[in-house]
Design a protein around this nucleic acid. Sequence first.
DNA 1: GTGATTGCAAAGCGTTTGCACCGTA
DNA 2: TACGGTGCAAACGCTTTGCAATCAC
Lengths: 160, 160
Amino acid sequence: MIMIIIFIIYHMANTSHNWSQIINKSGYRITGARQMIVEIILESDRALTPMDIFIEARERGKRMGLVTVYRTLEKLEEINLVERVHQEDGCHAYIAHVDGHKHLLLCRYCHRVEYFGGDNLTDLTRSISLQSGYEIHDHWLQLIGICPDCRENQNQEILE
Amino acid sequence: MIMIIIFIIYHMANTSHNWSQIINKSGYRITGARQMIVEIILESDRALTPMDIFIEARERGKRMGLVTVYRTLEKLEEINLVERVHQEDGCHAYIAHVDGHKHLLLCRYCHRVEYFGGDNLTDLTRSISLQSGYEIHDHWLQLIGICPDCRENQNQEILE
DNA sequence: GTGATTGCAAAGCGTTTGCACCGTA
DNA sequence: TACGGTGCAAACGCTTTGCAATCAC
């Protein structure tokens, strides 16, 4: 029951309607281009580059400039609706930001992205802080592996 | 004081010599440009961009093209002597790679970089793996804070 | 001597800027 | 209506490529 409620709240928090409100409250206008960009990011389960978003928008029949994608992503990042993902090959892809789940789990084959929580690095942070003399403000953790789908594909290839 | 200088010279010579051997064994030639680039990276305690290295080499009186820096970094990364650092503002800076100390501690003010070890993420990794169905291969952890020098500077500014 | 490496110039590519027109509030 | 947002074209800066001269082996 609690799980279901948590799921509903989580889901609600990520609707494009909610994003529209936040964009509006931040002093920015809601436009067709921005709605489309938000929609594309929310629907995707992997990190998208500006070019990915641009192509997808064109395929959906929207007349849109790549420049608009850049300018929109800049604003969405500023108001924390979107965050940049650093992958092995670069750092120019974006995903929807989810509060309270700051760590990422990446699939190295299909580039799918998931959030996870539950890390507890307080002990490590304290010990490194004592050893180094640094005042530690933040930590940044990512796990890299193979998602269930890609694992299955690998197994099938082995059987064939 | 003298002891420290001797230590630094010994340490540098040792490491730089090691690198030459590794470059050679990997089938690449030792050239003046490459020696200079390796030297600059080994002497630095922070991550350097190709442009940083290029400027430093020119200041040391070496006639060198930026292209050579790019091509050398590419090879050094390939044979694991150098690694790319992902910072908040991008991922185009390099540091010397140190085996067995894969995690970084970054100063957000002066961009100094240090390695640390001693993390134990096995429990976390196992639990995320079970929850998500991912087969987890690697983890990537960075701590971000303020180094002792920058902390001291901050305190002095407060006192003034 | 031979083939890898270098530096320059130029091309390539992702990203940003200038500007006139458009659309939201 | 006013002004933020848009798209196009052009500028920009970082990175890569082509090529002749150079240098390590």
